[in-house]
Amino acid sequence: MGLAISFWLLAAAAVGSALAVVLLRNVFRAALLLISCFFAIAGLFVTLGADFLAMVQVLVYVGAIAVLLLLAIMLTREAATGSPFSRWRIGGAIASVALLAAMIAVFRATPWKVADQSVVLKPTTAELGARLLTPESGFVLPFEIASVLLLAAVLGAIVLVKEK
């Protein structure tokens, strides 16, 4: 019961702030609401018993990505008066609707497994680590490839800045 209430509250918060992100003309406020959306999603993870994921959500999305987003906005001129991309409105709407349709189709087509008992809060960190890095699960290679990719991105960023 309590879980259901918090789920619906968090979901409403997430959807509400996500809508506000799109609709607000003040970019800085939109970014702040994006942060609140991230928080709501972190909360949803908690209700699902994914404590590690929730913390990583806050750490990565709020602590790093949103902060960099805010930095970019602060370096922008006239950020308070509105987004300069409004002439793409119709194209944007079409693209979003298409994306939404695709996602709904995928959701409906996926055979979701329903948990047969109520969620038990138990530590997931060790489990996650084992799944990622033990040879049996086979995620070692993708994991390493992802890190190489990130390294390449970092190097690329450095090269771009150095050009100046």
Binding site: D51, V67, M74
Partner: peptide
């Protein structure tokens, strides 16, 4: 006594900077 206590601390303490950014802006 969270199982992810250390992670929680790091995550939570990274929030406060958003308050500073908001104030600065």
């Amino acid at each position: 006594d969270l199982n992810v206590g250390v992670l929680y601390i790091v995550a939570v303490s990274s929030i406060s900077v958003i308050g500073m950014i908001m104030a600065g802006w």
